[in-house]
């Protein structure tokens, strides 16, 4: 990649940040050039974010909703809370979640980085 070809397409996912990329300058030497982003990165990042947003919308219980909102999946959240995956899967069921004791809600809220009260709400 030549220095003048470094993409400066104002990527929305970078939110105004610039990232350092290496490109070949006029003298043939590679050097760091700040880039405002490439549309390709925006496409694939938005695709990943939108997939998680879709999963959050289709969630059956508030816990599942917040799990995807926090960009986690079952393996990650189970790991973060320190329980088996089947146990988390059970807790994701709406009936089971509705009866979940406060200490469990606390553990989930802590792992998801939200308040305990927020865990019961879908916003």
């Amino acid at each position: 990649m030549r220095e003048r070809d470094v993409p400066q397409e104002g990527n929305a996912t970078l939110a105004g940040h610039r990232k350092a990329v290496y490109a070949v300058g006029e003298d043939g030497k590679l050097r760091v050039v700040p880039s405002r982003g490439w549309e390709v990165e925006e496409v694939v990042t938005r695709q990943a974010v939108e997939d998680l947003e879709r999963r959050a919308r289709e969630a059956r219980s508030p816990l599942e909703y917040h799990m995807y909102r926090a960009r986690m999946d079952i393996a990650m959240l189970a790991g973060a809370v320190g329980i088996w995956r089947w146990r988390l899967r059970r807790h994701l069921r709406p009936q089971v979640f509705a009866r979940l004791p406060l200490r469990w809600r606390r553990r989930y809220a802590e792992a998801l980085g939200i308040a305990v009260e927020a865990l019961a709400r879908v916003d």
């Binding site: 990649m1 990232k19 490439w38 390709v40 694939v44 990042t45 695709q47």
Partner: peptide
């Protein structure tokens, strides 16, 4: 299938790299 393809590119261009899967840094 599209998510899979997008994932390959995201790992290559976005996750902690200077693009092109670190090939440019190694060239430098």
């Amino acid at each position: 299938a599209k998510l899979y393809i997008g994932h390959i590119v995201r790992m290559q261009e976005e996750i902690g790299t200077g693009g092109a899967g670190f090939r440019f840094i190694y060239a430098a």
